[in-house]
């Protein structure tokens, strides 16, 4: 009975407790949760056709007021609902791209790292080609070549993020590949796929979680940049970078048109970075 009292807490609980003590990470987490809630619920509050994209020229370029919290843009659309809807656009594109990159890159990295030899060599030399082009530049090239729509944007961002995931998962897999409990699992006849999924990947998760969080941040920044250049999400879809770009013409006298989308991007990236940093600290056992 006595021994049970002093039972070691599970590793996940421990990580979460450490994360909970980190105030800035909690601020980041709170903002991320708020953004996700906004992204998921925005269609219930605002009608897409009536509020988000319908032009209302008589009410154009209204400064922020009680009626229009964030003011209205050059086409008379309210900026506040568009910012809220923008979270939906950025987060859904960002998360989809990262999910695809994680699955593809994770698979390639895990296979290469686990088997080593020729398979690993072929995969990694192939990844070297992708890694030789600066990531964001590659995303810009693919997005611009394919033409601007959301599906192409997700493809472009996913492709450019695959090598990063492949590399990080590969190196984690290599470090745990030859440890004793893996050997033990192999000795009792566990299949390769089972070993990789049940033993190798869970132990490689820490760096991957941190990389994923920070990758979502950099992808959202890229989405905004691409849309700013007119290569990402096409108008009238409310995307922060595109909104900022549209506000450029009216910046003198109507700076709120660029300021609110700018802050929206900044707060999102800031929150994801705070959370990512907090996760890194919480997952790094050296700081225990």
């Amino acid at each position: 009975m006595e021994a049970k009292k002093h039972k070691k807490k599970g590793p996940i609980v421990e990580v979460l407790q450490r994360l909970g003590r980190n105030k800035t990470a909690m601020v980041g987490l709170a903002i991320v949760i708020m953004l996700i809630v906004a992204a998921v619920t925005s269609p219930f509050f605002y009608d897409y056709d009536e509020v988000i994209i319908k032009q209302n020229i008589p009410e154009r370029l209204q400064h922020p007021s009680k009626t229009y919290i964030f003011g209205t843009d050059d086409l008379g659309r309210q900026i506040f609902p568009r910012i809220i809807y923008g979270a939906r656009v950025s987060l859904s594109v960002g998360f989809s791209a990262v999910a695809i990159a994680f699955i593809v890159g994770g698979f390639l990295g895990a296979v290469g790292g686990y088997y080593g030899g020729v398979i690993d060599n072929v995969i990694m030399r192939f990844m070297d080609i992708f890694l030789a082009i600066p990531g964001t530049l590659f995303a810009i090239t693919i997005a611009a070549a394919l033409g601007s729509n959301i599906r192409n944007l997700i493809i472009a961002l996913a492709i450019s993020s695959v090598p990063g995931f492949a590399r990080i998962i590969r190196s984690s897999v290599i470090t745990v590949r030859d440890v004793e409990y893996i050997e033990a699992a192999r000795a009792i006849g566990a299949k390769d796929s089972r070993i990789v999924l049940n033993h190798v990947i869970p132990n490689a998760l820490a760096p991957v979680i941190v990389h994923t969080t920070l990758n979502v941040a950099s992808i959202i920044l890229t989405i905004a940049g691409l849309s700013f250049l007119g290569l990402g999400v096409a108008p009238p879809t409310p995307e922060w970078g595109a909104m900022l770009s549209a506000g450029r013409t009216y910046i003198v006298g109507h700076s709120y048109m660029t300021a609110f989308p700018g802050f929206a991007i900044m707060i999102t990236i800031l929150a994801l970075n705070l959370l990512g940093d907090g996760l890194r600290d919480a997952l790094d056992p050296r700081l225990k």
């Binding site: 940049g225 900022l244 770009s245 660029t258 991007i265 900044m266 990236i269 800031l270 970075n273 705070l274």
Partner: peptide, 22 residues
């Protein structure tokens, strides 16, 4: 430093352009 990491280049660029150039 955190601001620098989160601020989109193009937004900072526009702000600098308005303030210090125009």
């Amino acid at each position: 430093a955190l601001l620098g990491i989160s601020m989109p280049i193009f937004w900072l660029g526009i702000l600098l352009l308005i303030q210090f150039a125009q």
